[in-house]
């Protein structure tokens, strides 16, 4: 019974989300926030592939978001190529970059991967500012206005962007669900839970982690294209900034790391919270979203390491434990202990 409801809940969520602009987000400003929320959800779902299933925490996923945004934008500005093609090229570039970054670092202990992703994104930030001839530097890059059309991924008004982002999110959730249920997903989780045992059981651990990272990076890149098209503008700070990286990881972690739906809920909830507070406090001080992210991070660390997705179980709402994979918080503990032993 519960499982039938579980199966229906997915499609129902998207039907519900499709009606939201009709009764809640009734003007363009609110719809713009809606698009942002969906894009962060898209990014969180992407991050979750390597961060949640694979247990390798990237604090630099803005790198791939930015690569996607700049690839499609530059192809559009310099060559008039449709962002659809540019977006796909961006995904490929991001996957190749993920391969190059992951190859030396994914065989090391998890913390090195976290540090390298963090620092690598800062390199891209500096480079994007330095090569201002190509990227426009800190001034940013404005995308040319074209006739609004689906083919050029450009519309007047936010409603079309909303449905476009929602469609991408739906595709990504399906990808995440398929990965989660596939043998690839089980291998990723096996590596997260105990890398040595996984290796001993014949899982090619480095290869699986690399595949997960490349998939995650490619998926995040398309969100960059979406965001660039929504704003028709991109600059180094918004593309490669630390806040962006934090937003991506936090969306997934806040919702429920390693679950299919957690990142969707977490990403949307995060933007709703921070934008809400920004609005309330805009006369008091700027940058309320940063402090919201900070407080959310501390709160999750102290009280809710499983994210929102673990709330029902914590509150005892689900009497019986459903057919669920190991709660990631528990399994990550074991991998840390092991690392501790290995030292």
């Amino acid at each position: 019974m519960i499982r039938t409801i579980g199966k229906l809940a997915g499609p129902l969520f998207f039907v519900f989300a499709a009606t939201v602009p009709l009764w809640l987000l009734q003007n363009d400003y609110l719809r713009g926030i809606g698009v942002r929320a969906l894009i962060v959800a898209v990014l969180a779902v992407s991050w979750n592939i390597i961060g949640g299933f694979g247990g390798r925490l990237s604090f630099g996923h803005a790198a791939f978001f930015g690569i996607g945004a700049y690839t499609s934008s530059l192809l559009l500005v310099d060559h008039g190529i449709s962002p659809w093609i540019g977006g796909v090229v961006g995904m490929l570039v991001a996957a190749v970059v993920a391969l190059l970054v992951g190859l030396p670092t994914l065989r090391l202990r998890g913390i090195f991967f976290t540090l390298v992703t963090f620092v690598f994104t800062l390199i891209l930030l500096t480079l994007a500012r330095y090569f201002s001839g190509l990227t426009g530097g800190d001034v940013g890059l404005s995308l040319p206005l074209t006739e609004p059309s689906l083919g050029m991924m450009q519309f007047r008004g936010q409603l079309a962007y909303y449905y476009l982002a929602l469609a991408v999110l739906a595709v990504y959730v399906v990808i995440a669900a398929v990965v989660s249920a596939s043998s690839f997903g089980y291998r990723l989780r096996a590596i997260r839970d105990d890398e040595e045992v996984a290796e001993a059981l014949g899982v090619p651990t480095t290869k699986v982690k690399l595949q997960g990272f490349m998939l995650s990076a490619g998926m995040a890149a398309f969100a960059g294209t979406l965001a660039a098209q929504q704003d028709l503008f991109i600059d180094p700070g918004s593309a490669f900034g630390v806040t962006r990286s934090v937003e991506i990881a936090l969306g997934a972690i806040f919702g429920g790391i390693g679950t299919v739906w957690g990142p969707v809920v977490g990403g949307i909830a995060l933007v709703a919270m921070s934008d809400g507070l920004n609005n309330v406090l805009q006369d008091v001080f700027a940058g309320a979203d940063t402090i919201v992210y900070g407080i959310a991070l501390v709160a999750v660390a102290l009280w809710l390491p499983g994210g929102l997705a673990s709330l029902p179980r914590r509150l005892g709402l689900l009497g019986r434990r459903r057919h669920a994979p190991t709660p990631p918080e528990a399994s990550m503990a074991s991998s840390t202990e092991k690392e501790h032993e290995l030292r």
Binding site: G110, I253, V300, A301, P305, A333, T336, E339
Partner: peptide, 8 residues
């Protein structure tokens, strides 16, 4: 866990 320390 690493995760909780990093988040905090």
């Amino acid at each position: 866990t690493d995760l909780r320390q990093l988040l905090l």
